[in-house]
Every structure is written in C-alpha cells, then in structure tokens.
Design a protein around this nucleic acid. Sequence first.
DNA 1: GGAACTCGCCAC
DNA 2: AAACGTGGCGAGTTCC
Length: 467
Amino acid sequence: MVQDIFAKDIKSAYGLFHEGILALALAERQGMRVDVTYINRQSERITRQIVGLETQFYFSKFFSDWKKSRKGKATKININSSSQLGEYLYGTLELKPTKLTATGKGSTDVEAITQLNIPELNKLLEAKKLKKLRDTYLAGFLREAVDGFIHPFFNLHLVRTFRGSSNSPNFQNVPKRDKVAMQTVRQALYPREGNQLLELDYEQLEVKIATCYHEDPNMLEFIRTGHDFHLDFTKEIFQIDAYDPKVHKVLRAATKNGFVFPEFYGDYYKNCATYMVSNWCNLPSVGIWKAGQGIEVGTEHVSDILLRGGIKSATSFERHLKEIEDDMWNNRFKVYAQWKERWWKQYQKQGYFLSKTGFLFKSVMTRNDAINYPVQGAAFHILLLALIHATKALEREGMKTRIVGQIHDAIVFDVYPPELKKVVRIMKCIMENDVRQIWKWINVPLKVDAELCPVDGSWAEKQDYKI
DNA sequence: GGAACTCGCCAC
DNA sequence: AAACGTGGCGAGTTCC
C-alpha cells in the first residue's frame, strides 16, 4: 500500500499535526477579548442605518414594480432573497444576466447588479453589506462570547489541502480590506487589559513555497533580490515606462489581484481580461473606449493610458493579455510551467503525491487542484511549525504573552508590553531561521512582517511595525 | 421543524 | 487540453 511506502513521511506529518493541535488548543483556551457593550451599541447603530436605507428602497418605483410582479405567488416579497430578485430581473424584466451562478441562473451578486446600472438597487446593496457586518460578525462574536472572551476553534481535520480552518466564530475572515467594515468589526476585538495585539505574517509565503517545488531560476532570483515582479507585469500590461508608485498604485493592485495571482492559481487570460476590464479598471466590456473612461489614475483615467498604448477595446485588451500570458509561461517562468506539467503527469500516472511536509494526497483531483494543494498545504505547515515552537518558547521563558489565533500565514499575539521586544526577537528567529533548520527543503529566504496595535487598542488600530 | 441545498461574501 | 485554489457562515428555499 502507498501508505506503507511513505510510512516515515506520514509519521512526521502526523507528528506535526499532533503537536500543532495541542498548540492550537492552547490558543483556543486563551481566546480573544471582546467588547460586548461596543457590539450592542454598534448593532443598534447599524440597524438604524439599515432601516433608513431600506425605507428609501421601499419608496422606489423599482420596489413597487417588483412587489406587483409577485401578485399571485405563494411567497410574498422578501428583499433579502437573491432568488426572488433574480426571478424579477431576469424573468419578469427579461434583463440579460452579465454573469451566471454555478447552477446556471442569472447572478445577483454585487458585480452583476452593478453592471445592470439600476441606481435604485444601490440602497439595497448598501443595506446588504451592513447586514453582513451585523449578522455574521458582530452577532457571531456576541453569540460566542463567554465572560468577555471569544474562543475561536482552530481545526486541522477539515481541509483537503491539509491547511487549518477556524469556526465559532471564524477567526480567519474578519473584514480587513474595506475600511468601514474593518473598523466596525475589528473595534470589537481587544487585547487583555494593559496588553497590545501583535500580528506576525509571512511575506509572500505561497509564492515562495511554490518555488521550493518548481525551483524556477527566475522566480528564485526575484525572491533572493526582493524584486517586485508585480511591477514588471504592471508595466507590461499598461505599457508604462516610468512607474510612479503614487500615481500607478491602483494599476499594480489590479495586475497583482486580477492577473498574476489568478494565473498562479491556474486561471487564464480570457477570464483575467474580463475581470480586469470590469472589476479593476471599470471600463466597458463592449465597444471602443474613449478618453477619460474607467478608474482614475493620477490626473488621467485608465482608458487614456491604454489608448496611448494602442489598446482600445476589451477585445484588444484580451489579445494583449494573451501575449503577456504566453511570455509569462513560455519565457519568464518556463521552469515553473514545466514543473506544473511534470507534477500533473506524475499524479495522473500514480494517483497520488506527497507534499514537501510529508502529507499524502490521494483523492481525485483536477489539474489545478493537483498543482495548488501541495503548495497551499506546505505553506500553512511552515506557519504551524513556527506556532508550535512559539508556544513552547513562551512557556519556556515563562512569559505573559499569549498566542490567540492563526490566519493561515499569520500568528496573532496578545502581548504583555514589557515583553514586546523579546517576543519579536524570538519570533523572528523561529519564523525566519529555525523552521529552515528543521526543514532543509525550504531553499528560499523567509521574511516576517509585523503589525502592532497600541496598548489597550482594538484590532482595528493595527499599524505596520518595523522589526 | 430540521436537513440539505444554493447563493453571496468575508478571509488567505 | 483546459481554464481560479481553500475555508465558514447567514439567509432563503426546498424537501421530507
């Protein structure tokens, strides 16, 4: 049996999870402090906002027409219902969906609704967003709070890639990118009295771990020199010679999240082009673009930049992206591409593979699955190994600082301020050096970034902290 | 009245 | 040749 051949690997993988779950159980027991009074106050405030937005929506012509259209139906109108909205938009009104759901029905998500360009629906979208904050996050914290603490679970037995997960409440999806959502929710979470929250995360961990598998020399060079390859792609896609971070930051974000990462996960130019045009550039998907269209970039608009480079429609943007994709996989990251093929062929032949961390993957996988799983899993295992050693170090040193959570490539601490410097020093050593001593296959440098909150400050107040 | 499903959205 | 990876969770809906 395959299991017998890899007994040694599987045993060490088991050892990691055995020690890992003990360290995570301690973090669960510690828990994170919540401000129940704040949550109650905030929930009431959000409810008032929701009522205001919904009242405006109820007075709209759109709503009265929608309501009329449901005459004679068994269930009465419910503005929270995606299926009712979809029925009305794509059935009754016969609008053409810009996007379909997994089961082939017209989508009613933010992207699809926005493209329909029905201003009255904006109130509904705003209200839905607030409900998410109130009902998922704030209500979840309140429900799970015991004596002013939440104790999120950290599981190691639920994810097919052998990553971890969290629930009740989920500690790993607290709003971060949207500023208002971030503030509203994270202000509910606090350190222990007199303490401060510290978050240490690995920079570019998955990209680096993928490199440990494929060992592409160009990627290795980027990592060793700290070269920003997202910038190279930004310059190519938008044909910019002089990159000015102040002006072109939005284009770099669009490139990184709309092209480079999707390509790494196995997406291809057509999807990326559609997504970049509509979501990141806010440009029309049909017709010839005009000056002054799309997102603002400094003093001009994104269409001005693309037109200057001779890209004048979504169709020509797609052709352009195909060329960049070809160059990406045939030249720049050729060895990476070859590894993907080899890895996939090997899995097809054998029906299983082993991760760098000794985990045996033998389920039925698609091509993208087989390529992504071992990377995602092993990246998390580095974090878990660091977390185990951190837990032991805090215990050994008799420190008052605690680990309260884990977010895939990050550890969250509730720090006793006099120990801050020491914690950072020990952790930097564990995360960047010790794990590489233990796992020699990590042949790339690892780097830790830190974010710190003020003493007695909430999780919303975290700031970059140079270590 | 609960299980199972869909959809949408938050994180990495 | 094929076409974005992993979760948790709330609300609505359908089925038993």
